[in-house]
Design a protein around this nucleic acid. Structure first.
Lengths: 225, 225
DNA sequence: GTCACGAAAGTGACTAGATCACTTGATGAC
DNA sequence: GTCATCAAGTGATCTAGTCACTTTCGTGAC
């Protein structure tokens, strides 16, 4: 049960731990590949695989002939992977509450007929339980962002929702009022359809607020599990 | 001149090209490691390093014993690395225009005295030309996002500005009216200081709009360099 | 004393050829 | 028809190196 994950994955995590424990900051040098290989009792190619993975998000940087150094992505990782307490979930909802109303308003202004079809599709998909299908059913809120016609907006929101995806499941577990969820989504869609930006914004805001309320009440009133 | 970059980096790019050229979509299988190694005339550990790098952003996924598959991150990469034309810069500005006014408003509501000091620091740093110092001077707009007290908001905006960082330099090159930039930042800061959310939002909006205008005029009027 | 040069040590980059572990699909017994 | 079995394909990792680059530090010229 310790780990179904690969040796390389664990290794990457352990290297991050090493950076944390050592109090290293961006710019500081890590141990050499060979030293790391010895420390973790693996071979250098394996260490390098783990480091490459970390390099991709700039957690570490290679400098040929010089050494391996902590990169700026390290601190970013610390923020992103912060312990998944209630704070981080509330932080996520707060962020969405800040950004999504504007996005919904813009969607109401810019949406095309095709966007509307996609939104309707996302809405019906949400009701049918996930099939064995690979496609994880386009998230309604991402579909709204896509309806702005700006791919970067959609991408940003998707990245945001992808974060803390585990906690998002928790939210759904609590906020299990599917009918209400669907009804609110439908209202938002209607506002976008008729191009009422203000109403789309307000509805999105109150929708997220109600989710937040459930969350806060739940954490205050309910015990574990 | 062909490439100062490492073999692994080039290899990662070439594998992505291979996915693109092959018309592969998320879920499709890649060639085996051995086949890739043969194709590119490198050894398997090298291929694996390149693949690990791509795995970090979910461009590919490993399935032990089964194969290597294209992941959801592939399409994301396509969006992020789309050819850096004017469209993508305008898209970025449009996104910022959509998100940052709300953030500035929230900052005006939530900022602490410490946040104000940080903002002032970011403002003066922007005027002094970059020193040899490693720290790349906290971006004013990121500092505003941080003043919301929500780390996730700051992180999101930072990620956004980090994208297309090359093009951002272009923008600065055109929008070289440092004094005006600084003056507008100062106005925004003042609104945040006194807690005027509406004004902070409006000022941010007009600030970004003026940047966009310069950009659009520049692209229409000016030739290359 | 100062500074250019250059060898040596340390480090990452990559090679070469294996072995082990897991998945998958075909085969064959029941 | 169903299910256990097995073999081929693939990823995961190892062993044991060589090559290329950077940094350092000592040497010697000035």
């Amino acid at each position: 049960m310790t780990a179904q994950t690969s040796l390389t994955s664990r290794l990457a995590d352990e290297i991050v731990d090493l950076i944390v424990d050592g109090g290293l900051r961006p710019g500081d040098a890590l141990e050499s590949s060979r030293a790391l290989a010895q420390r973790f009792e693996v071979t250098t190619p394996t260490v390098r695989e783990a480091l490459r993975r970390l390099e991709a998000t700039d957690v570490v940087q290679f400098r040929h002939g010089s050494g391996t150094y902590v990169g700026a992505g390290f601190e970013r990782r610390m923020v992103v992977n912060q312990h998944a307490g209630r704070d981080s979930i509330e932080e996520l909802i707060a962020t969405r509450l800040l950004l999504e109303p504007s996005i919904a308003a813009e969607a109401a202004r810019c949406r095309t007929d095709v966007d509307l079809e996609v939104l309707e599709g996302a809405l019906t998909n949400a009701l049918t339980p996930q099939r064995g299908d690979e496609r994880p059913a386009l998230h309604f809120h991402v579909a709204v962002a896509a309806a702005t016609g700006n791919r970067l907006v959609a991408e940003t929101l998707e990245a945001l929702l992808h974060l803390r995806s585990r906690e998002q499941v928790q939210i759904r577990h609590r906020y299990d009022d599917r009918e209400r969820d669907h009804a609110e989504h439908e209202q938002i869609l209607e506002a976008i359809r008729v191009g009422d930006a203000d109403r789309a914004s307000e509805l999105t805001s109150s929708h997220l607020q109600s989710i937040r309320d459930v969350l806060v009440d739940g954490s205050a009133g309910k015990g574990a599990k």
